[in-house]
């Protein structure tokens, strides 16, 4: 549910001389695994084909959103730092994993999971320096996100990016104080890591048709950050909460997306067959509507309290079908 009528997708900002398709840069259609390339939110690289649209997006934001985004970037300067000389030895990675998850929750994390990092979690100009990623999710306030796609919801997104980045920064400082290297990744305009693939492997949820993650606890209504570290940890595995069981048949986000950017079939993207949103259609609308987020808001998973029951129902239905197929 959202409170406002949706702004029209007509007369969106556009390029007169079309740049390289953002979908091609993202690797749509590629069946082999390749490193991801930067395409948006990287305005320091002035020669990226979509820099013009990116600059327009920044200029079109409201002052309050701009200020919060700058606060987030200022916070991110603490994402790396000195490591204590005295190292705490880790004899039980499972116990250390529990301790760090508890610490993350004390700092304000909603959901936490741990996975091993892979080179494809980082953009192709980055080197993988750490073994583990502690993935963190914090929910957005639903009463603010009902205002999509307006300034109020855009500000809530930036606020939560700031919160989740703060948790990652403070957790990384906590790990470094134990004598282990740790680097926080947060805020999409400063980050070098792809949050969603790491968080999916860490068991925070699954990828939805709208290109965002869906968790049982928060639906699509949360933001991610991560801490990369070498401290020995036991890892979590991916979860199956029944996202595809709903997404395959549900068209709520597809229908409600004003520029028709959401695709009903999975695609090959950099060696993975998965849900993918058309970048070239989404980004111009995204750039004029404070980061849009209509798809996140209308997703049935995002209704507060619905996730656990929905997951249970979908998985039970799937089990029943499989049993019937076997008989």
């Amino acid at each position: 549910m959202k409170l406002y009528d949706t702004p029209s997708a007509e007369n969106l900002p556009a390029y007169q001389a079309l740049p390289v398709s953002g979908n091609d840069i993202n690797g749509r259609g590629l069946e082999e695994k390749v490193r991801p390339r930067r395409v948006f939110h990287a305005t320091w690289i002035r020669e990226l084909p979509w820099t013009g649209m990116n600059d327009f997006f920044l200029m079109n934001n409201s002052w309050s959103i701009m200020l919060q985004a700058l606060r987030n970037r200022w916070l991110m300067r603490r994402c790396a730092g000195p490591i204590a000389k005295r190292r705490v030895e880790v004899n039980d990675p499972g116990e250390m994993a529990r301790r760090l998850k508890q610490k993350a929750q004390e700092l304000g994390a909603g959901i936490v999971g741990i996975t091993e990092m892979e080179p494809n979690d980082l953009y192709d100009d980055m080197e993988m320096k750490h073994r583990y990623a502690i993935c963190i999710g914090i929910p957005m306030r639903r009463e603010e996100m009902l205002h999509v796609p307006h300034e109020r919801s855009g500000l809530e997104v930036q606020r939560v990016y700031g919160e989740v980045a703060r948790v990652a920064v403070e957790l990384a400082e906590y790990i470094r104080a134990m004598g282990w290297p740790a680097h926080a990744y947060g805020d999409p305009r400063s980050t070098e890591a792809l949050q969603i693939p790491m968080a999916v492997r860490a068991g925070l949820g699954q990828l939805g048709k709208h290109g965002s993650m869906i968790s049982k606890e928060y639906g699509s209504n949360f933001r991610l950050s991560a801490v990369a570290t070498d401290i020995p940890l036991s890892i979590d595995g991916p979860v199956d909460i029944g996202v595809d069981d709903l997404c395959l048949g549900c068209r709520r986000c597809t229908i409600d997306c004003p520029p028709d950017a959401i695709i009903d079939e999975k695609q090959w993207v950099r060696g993975e067959y998965r849900w993918y949103v058309d970048f070239d259609k989404c980004v111009p609308y995204f750039s004029t509507t404070f980061g849009c987020a209509i798809c996140i808001e209308v997703c049935p998973w995002s209704e507060p309290g619905r996730g656990p029951k929905l997951s249970q129902m979908l998985l039970a239905k799937r089990d029943k079908k499989e049993r019937q197929a076997r008989e």
């Binding site: 007369n11 556009a14 002035r46 820099t51 079109n60």
Partner: peptide, 28 residues
């Protein structure tokens, strides 16, 4: 100026081109 220009273009039903923000040589 960009924000008010874009608003005016939308009201008039005209397309707003962002090529003007593309830096020289932006082709990578």
């Amino acid at each position: 100026k960009v924000r008010s220009e874009f608003r005016r273009f939308r009201e008039e039903g005209r397309r707003y081109y962002v090529d003007r923000f593309t830096p020289p040589g932006g082709k990578l």
